[in-house]
């Protein structure tokens, strides 16, 4: 049996006294594309925030490659090979595209992703490499956020609402890009409300409801309507 790349076992996470994640179990296998779906406010982003120690984990455990992560902190996720493309992109607006990308290589993890390779994936970023982040469109900012995450040579990329604010045609391009990315061996955990992107990209899904995993299954076993029904249930 394949050892999961990321495994959450009975994770309970809090914001202050608010108990948001309530015993969440979740696994992502190496190279797998997994989606987490659910209504607003059910705790999807809290999964990311737990890994980044923004939400406090007070119960359960997180494992990478079968090894428990004893202490989560803001800067440790990247060291474990987890790259996060956050909601809202959060690029650094006054740094140039190239500077943003190079900051992504914080830990110099060995791997295939170099500046040239990111530029070959996103030629528009290469053309505008000295442009400050503020001058980019929403789609270009998303490319930059993904490119910056790749510069850390991650094993797992977590994308939080990547389609938010993007035109449908850009979302289609991004779906193709993420599919290509997964074929290079990078696992993807997609936190998304945009069901078309989820259906087209993910192999497995988790439906989150009130901080718990309500259902999990293979994407090939559901269609848009049944997945929507599971979310609204």
């Amino acid at each position: 049996m394949t050892t999961p790349l990321l495994e959450l076992k009975g994770v309970n996470a809090f914001y202050g006294s608010a108990h948001v994640l309530q015993g969440v179990d979740l696994t992502v296998l190496p190279g797998e594309r997994v989606a987490v779906v659910g209504r607003n406010g059910v705790g999807k982003t809290t999964i990311v925030n737990t890994l980044l120690a923004i939400a406090a984990m007070r119960g359960g455990s997180v494992h990478m490659r079968g090894e428990p992560l004893p202490k989560l902190a803001g800067h440790t996720a990247a060291a474990h090979g987890i790259a996060v493309v956050p909601q809202g992109r959060m690029i650094l607006p006054n740094l140039s595209i190239e500077e943003n990308l190079k900051l992504g290589a914080a830990l110099r993890r060995p791997g295939e992703w170099t500046l040239d390779r990111v530029y070959s994936l996103f030629p528009i970023l290469a053309e505008r490499r000295h442009t400050p982040g503020t001058a980019l469109s929403g789609g270009q900012q998303q490319m930059l956020a993904i490119g910056r995450a790749l510069m850390g040579n991650p094993d797992l990329m977590i994308l939080d609402e990547p389609s938010e604010g993007l035109a449908p045609v850009i979302v289609d391009e991004m779906e193709k890009l993420l599919r290509d990315l997964a074929e290079t061996g990078v696992a993807i955990l997609l936190i998304e409300q945009h069901l078309r992107l989820v259906l087209d990209l993910a192999e497995r899904f988790y439906v989150l409801s009130k901080g718990r995993v309500a259902e999990t299954g293979l994407m090939k076993d559901v269609d848009r309507e049944s997945l929507q029904a599971r979310i609204m249930h």
Partner: peptide
Amino acid sequence: MGVRENEERVLFLGY
């Protein structure tokens, strides 16, 4: 300069 603009983001990059 990145920290000044968005410390949290730079932290999550592993710094």
